[in-house]
Amino acid sequence: MADMTAQDHAHQGAWADPVDVCVMTYDERFLRRKVVQTVGGLSVLVDFAHTTSLDHGDALRTTDGTFVEIQAADEALMKVTGDLVRLAWHIGNRHTPCQIEADHLLIQTNKVMRDMLGKLGAQVEDVTMPFTPEGGAYGHGRTHGHDHGASHGGDHGH
């Protein structure tokens, strides 16, 4: 049995004074119905109407009106350097979530992407840190990686 239930969330800056913190990876922050654990040991039943992507700094709004802050967890990533504009285009063309920094890109660890980026002249370094990639093209949501192979219809115009 969960200690609390959250049926809604609030974006960063739209809430204050959390009762606890929940540290989650990028993949864990994409949820609809799941029990999550806080740093302080509370369990929260997340019961959203729709699958939702939570960002670092957002908060779960519990049914009793309290907030549980969401923090991005450290995870295995690849730090990519080189011709960032060209590399970002190829990463985006693969619909791969990407965190864009001034002097590097961060993506989740993936052997196929590592090989592709190496062939494009990128330097790839393994790092462990929070992952907070760019949202969707319209400022919300997230991108979804997928295979451009035969099962997907191959070349589909992008």
Rank of each mutant, 00 (worst) to 15 (best):
A2S: 05
T5L: 09
A6P: 00
D8Q: 07
Q12V: 15
W15Q: 01
D17L: 04
V19D: 02
V21D: 09
M24D: 03
M24K: 09
T25E: 00
D27W: 02
L31M: 11
S43K: 07
S43I: 13
D47Y: 00
H50V: 15
T52K: 09
A59C: 08
V68L: 03
V68K: 00
E69W: 10
Q71P: 00
D74C: 13
M78Y: 13
V80K: 00
T81V: 08
G82H: 04
D83E: 08
L84K: 01
R86F: 12
I91P: 00
G92M: 01
P97V: 09
C98P: 02
A102Q: 10
H104L: 14
L105W: 04
Q108R: 07
Q108E: 05
T109V: 03
V112N: 15
V112H: 07
R114L: 03
R114I: 00
R114D: 00
D115K: 11
L117W: 02
L117I: 12
G118P: 09
A122V: 11
Q123M: 05
E125F: 15
D126Q: 13
T128P: 03
M129W: 11
F131I: 05
G136H: 05
H144E: 15
H148V: 14
H148N: 08
A150W: 01
S151Q: 08
D155C: 15
D155K: 05
